[in-house]
Every structure is written in C-alpha cells, then in structure tokens.
Nucleic acid binder design. Sequence first.
DNA 1: CCGCACTATACAACTAGACAAGTGATGGCA
DNA 2: TGCCATCACTTGTCTAGTTGTATAGTGCGG
Lengths: 237, 237
Amino acid sequence: MTPRTALWAEIAEAVATDIATGAYRPGDKLPSEAALATRFGVNRHTVRRALAHLSAGNLVRTRQGAGAFVAHRPTEYPLGRRTRFSENLRAAGRMPRREMLALETRAATGHEAAKLNLATGARVHMVLGLGRADGVPLSLNQSVFPAALLPNLPRDLSETKSITAALRRGGIFDYTRAHTRLSAEIATASQAGQLDLRIGAALLRTEGLNVDPTGRPVEYGTTWFAGDRVTLTVGGE
Amino acid sequence: MTPRTALWAEIAEAVATDIATGAYRPGDKLPSEAALATRFGVNRHTVRRALAHLSAGNLVRTRQGAGAFVAHRPTEYPLGRRTRFSENLRAAGRMPRREMLALETRAATGHEAAKLNLATGARVHMVLGLGRADGVPLSLNQSVFPAALLPNLPRDLSETKSITAALRRGGIFDYTRAHTRLSAEIATASQAGQLDLRIGAALLRTEGLNVDPTGRPVEYGTTWFAGDRVTLTVGGE
DNA sequence: CCGCACTATACAACTAGACAAGTGATGGCA
DNA sequence: TGCCATCACTTGTCTAGTTGTATAGTGCGG
C-alpha cells in the first residue's frame, strides 16, 4: 500500500536516471520545476525536494531565476610539476581558456597604489577574468596595471585577448613574481555564481605582485580558485 | 547558516566600497550596467537594483543615455555678507556655471516693493537663474532689481551673463547682504525638474536683500538650493 | 493526539529578452 | 568652419518566466 520510497525520492531517482543515460548532459538545462511538477503529477514543492537532493549530491546545480542545470563532473585540475602554471602562480593570461569579464580604467585604491608603488589616485587598468578548463570554471582573477606604464593596454588587450601579448606590445617582455600570498576565503554570492559554486563554498585565494627585470612593479593581482577543483603545489613536486 | 544577503545588496556594497576606497571618485563615470552585470556575473536588472539603491542614498547619480556617475559630496556653501555664487564655488574648487532661465520687467508685488523700499507698482527686473557646479544643478534663484535704478540691466545682463558685472555697468560697484532668512520647502514639479531632483525632495530656501554701500536696496531675491547637495555654513571660520 | 509527507497559495528575487528614449562622438556636407 | 544626420552606446521600462521562501492546510499513520 504505502510506497516504501517517498514520492520525492522516486522523482529524484527518475531525473538521476535521465542524467545517467545521457538524456540530459552536463550543462543542459532541466525542465522547470513547474514543468516537472505537472509531468510527474505532483506539487512543485515535491519536485523541489527532489532537486534539492540531487543538488546536495552535486548532480545538478540550480540558479535562481535561470533554472536547474546538470552539473559538470567535479574535475580535478592537475596542477602538478608539469603545469606551466606553477611557475606563475597567479596565472595572468596563462589559463587554458580565459574569458574577460571586465576591463576598466580607474583610480588606484590606496592598497593598490602602495603595492604598485604609485602615487595615490594614479590611474590603473583593471582586468577581471574567468579561467576555465574543459569548460569548467576554475578561477576568477583581478589584475591592476599602472596606466602610465601601459597606456595602450586596453586596446592591446581587446585586440590580442592575451595579457602576455598585450604586455609585450607595451614593452614589457618579461616579468617575474616578486611575492605571492595564499589564503582561503568563503565565496560571495556573485563569486559563487561566476564559478558555478554554491554560496559559502571555499575559495583558495592567491595574491601576488609581478615586476619587470628592473624590479619595477608591473601588475598586482588576486586570483580566487574554486577550492574543490584545484590543488596548488608550491615548489618540490 | 549564514543569513543570505541579497545579490543586489552585495553588488551595491561592492560598488560603494570601490567608491569609498577611491577607485571611483566623485564625478567619475561608473562602468555601464551591462559591464557591471558581466563583471558580477549577474543580470542587468540586478545591477539596476543595486544602482537604484546607491542612487537613493545619493551616492551615485544616473543620467539616461549617459551613464551612472559618482555623486559629488554635498557642496559647502558659505553664507556671509558678501555671498557670491561663483566665488564661493571657485573657492571650493568646483567649476561654477550660471544659466539664465528667464528675464522680464514687470510691476513689483507689494512684498517686493516693501523690501526694496519702492512705491507700489514700481517696475522691477526679474531674473530667474540656475546655478551649477561641475554640471550638477545646485540652486535655483529669483532676483528682482529696481528698474528705475538699473534701466539697462536686461541688456547688460544678457551681454555679460554675470550679475555682478551687470550691476557694475549700472553703477553699483559693491553691494552687501542686509539680511538673510532661511527656511525649508518641498520641491514643486518644475523646481524638481530644473534641479534634477525627485518631486517632493527637500529644498533649502534663502531669501535675502542686498544693499549698496549707502544702504539703498539693490536686489531682493530668493534662492532654492537642492537640500542634499548643499550645506550652507554661517559665520564661524 | 502528534509528526510527517504532501498540497496550495502567495510573494520575493533573479533571469531573459525586447524596445523606447536619451547621450555623445563621428563623419559628411554646405 | 559650422551645422546636421547618423550611429553606437547607455539608461529606462515593460513583459514573461524561473527559482527561493514563507505560511497555511490536508490526509494519514503512529
């Protein structure tokens, strides 16, 4: 008489099966809760309970207002000794796939000015980017460059789409890392949205300064990695 | 669980922080709503809500078609015996500009005649003007001058665009403030439109009489300041 | 009786897309 | 030169759809 498994569990099972069989593939949008509700002949809350279960199991990810999506497989990003990335921990422009989210020129904050050894209020170019590997968002980074040193950076950057190339055009052919600092943070809502994480997820934060061969500060930036998708290795192997 | 802060509130906070740290300074144009939306990984409407919040708090000002700008902090406007709009603002490091909205010659009202010590029905020149600083409308003012004393004021005024200069041409080389009265009012629709305020915003109203060195009334006028953009200082330093 | 699963309803928050209205820069033309 | 039409861009507004959350109610089994 009474089903041993709850209604919502059955629905979760059915959706999970659809995902396993490939009916819905990673990144696909699931039908809306309302659609699933009528399809299974239940209330929307029952569907929500099923989706919450799948979400807790990292099988689907929901975005308010947008829908529920099949989650990407939790890929470990191999960040080992062979990764060129490790020599430049902050990875300015060296991610497998980069996406530029913002590019603006504004006054340096006091902190930035101090790091870049600029007068307070000097102009800087700010670049915000998203790094992905195999389509999975891995890192979010923000860099600031002295505008006086690289007046044409915005144009060069929008043309070359590469920070390294843009710096080369600006006369900076090499730069090294002066210092790096590591810490951990909790994702804000917007960071979580961009990295496809749940809010409150852990972020690995690296902050660093790059200088040219003469020791002049060239770039100061911060990168936030999705804590559960990246392992950073420092030195050794 | 962490108390969930709304996404738009987080974005408003972030922008406000950027303003507070000096990344965006008064008068600066903020990135477009679309740019902020991609930067925070959010829909434009969410950004709009954040900006609306900042706008309501008078931290930013938006102009359709132009963009969103960091608001100027309230202008300090010293009130004294020798109050001169342009000089005051120049002293505060702002770029003043006066705009004449209307100029007509008519009979004085009973109140005006009494103030200017004229016979009832004497002719006066009335000037309606708008004062701006750095392009931001600050004040609306109405002045009446005895026409008998300054027959050529309309011509002089339209040529010189400066009240002080026009008075000089009319033989008034100096004038001081005999009295000033302060009060507060609610903006009418037309006042709000001219001052770029919301209808119902608070206006600071000053009414005063200027006299020449012999004590003869020269000008009687009322000025309405945008209450949230101006602070009047009286006496003291 | 209580607790549980589920239903029902309502509203808030966010996304998505479209179009109108206004601004500012540019280039053509008299 | 100066004016003007044009065009890209930006904010304002609207409609519609989606998930998030809160509250209240129902039926059933212990």
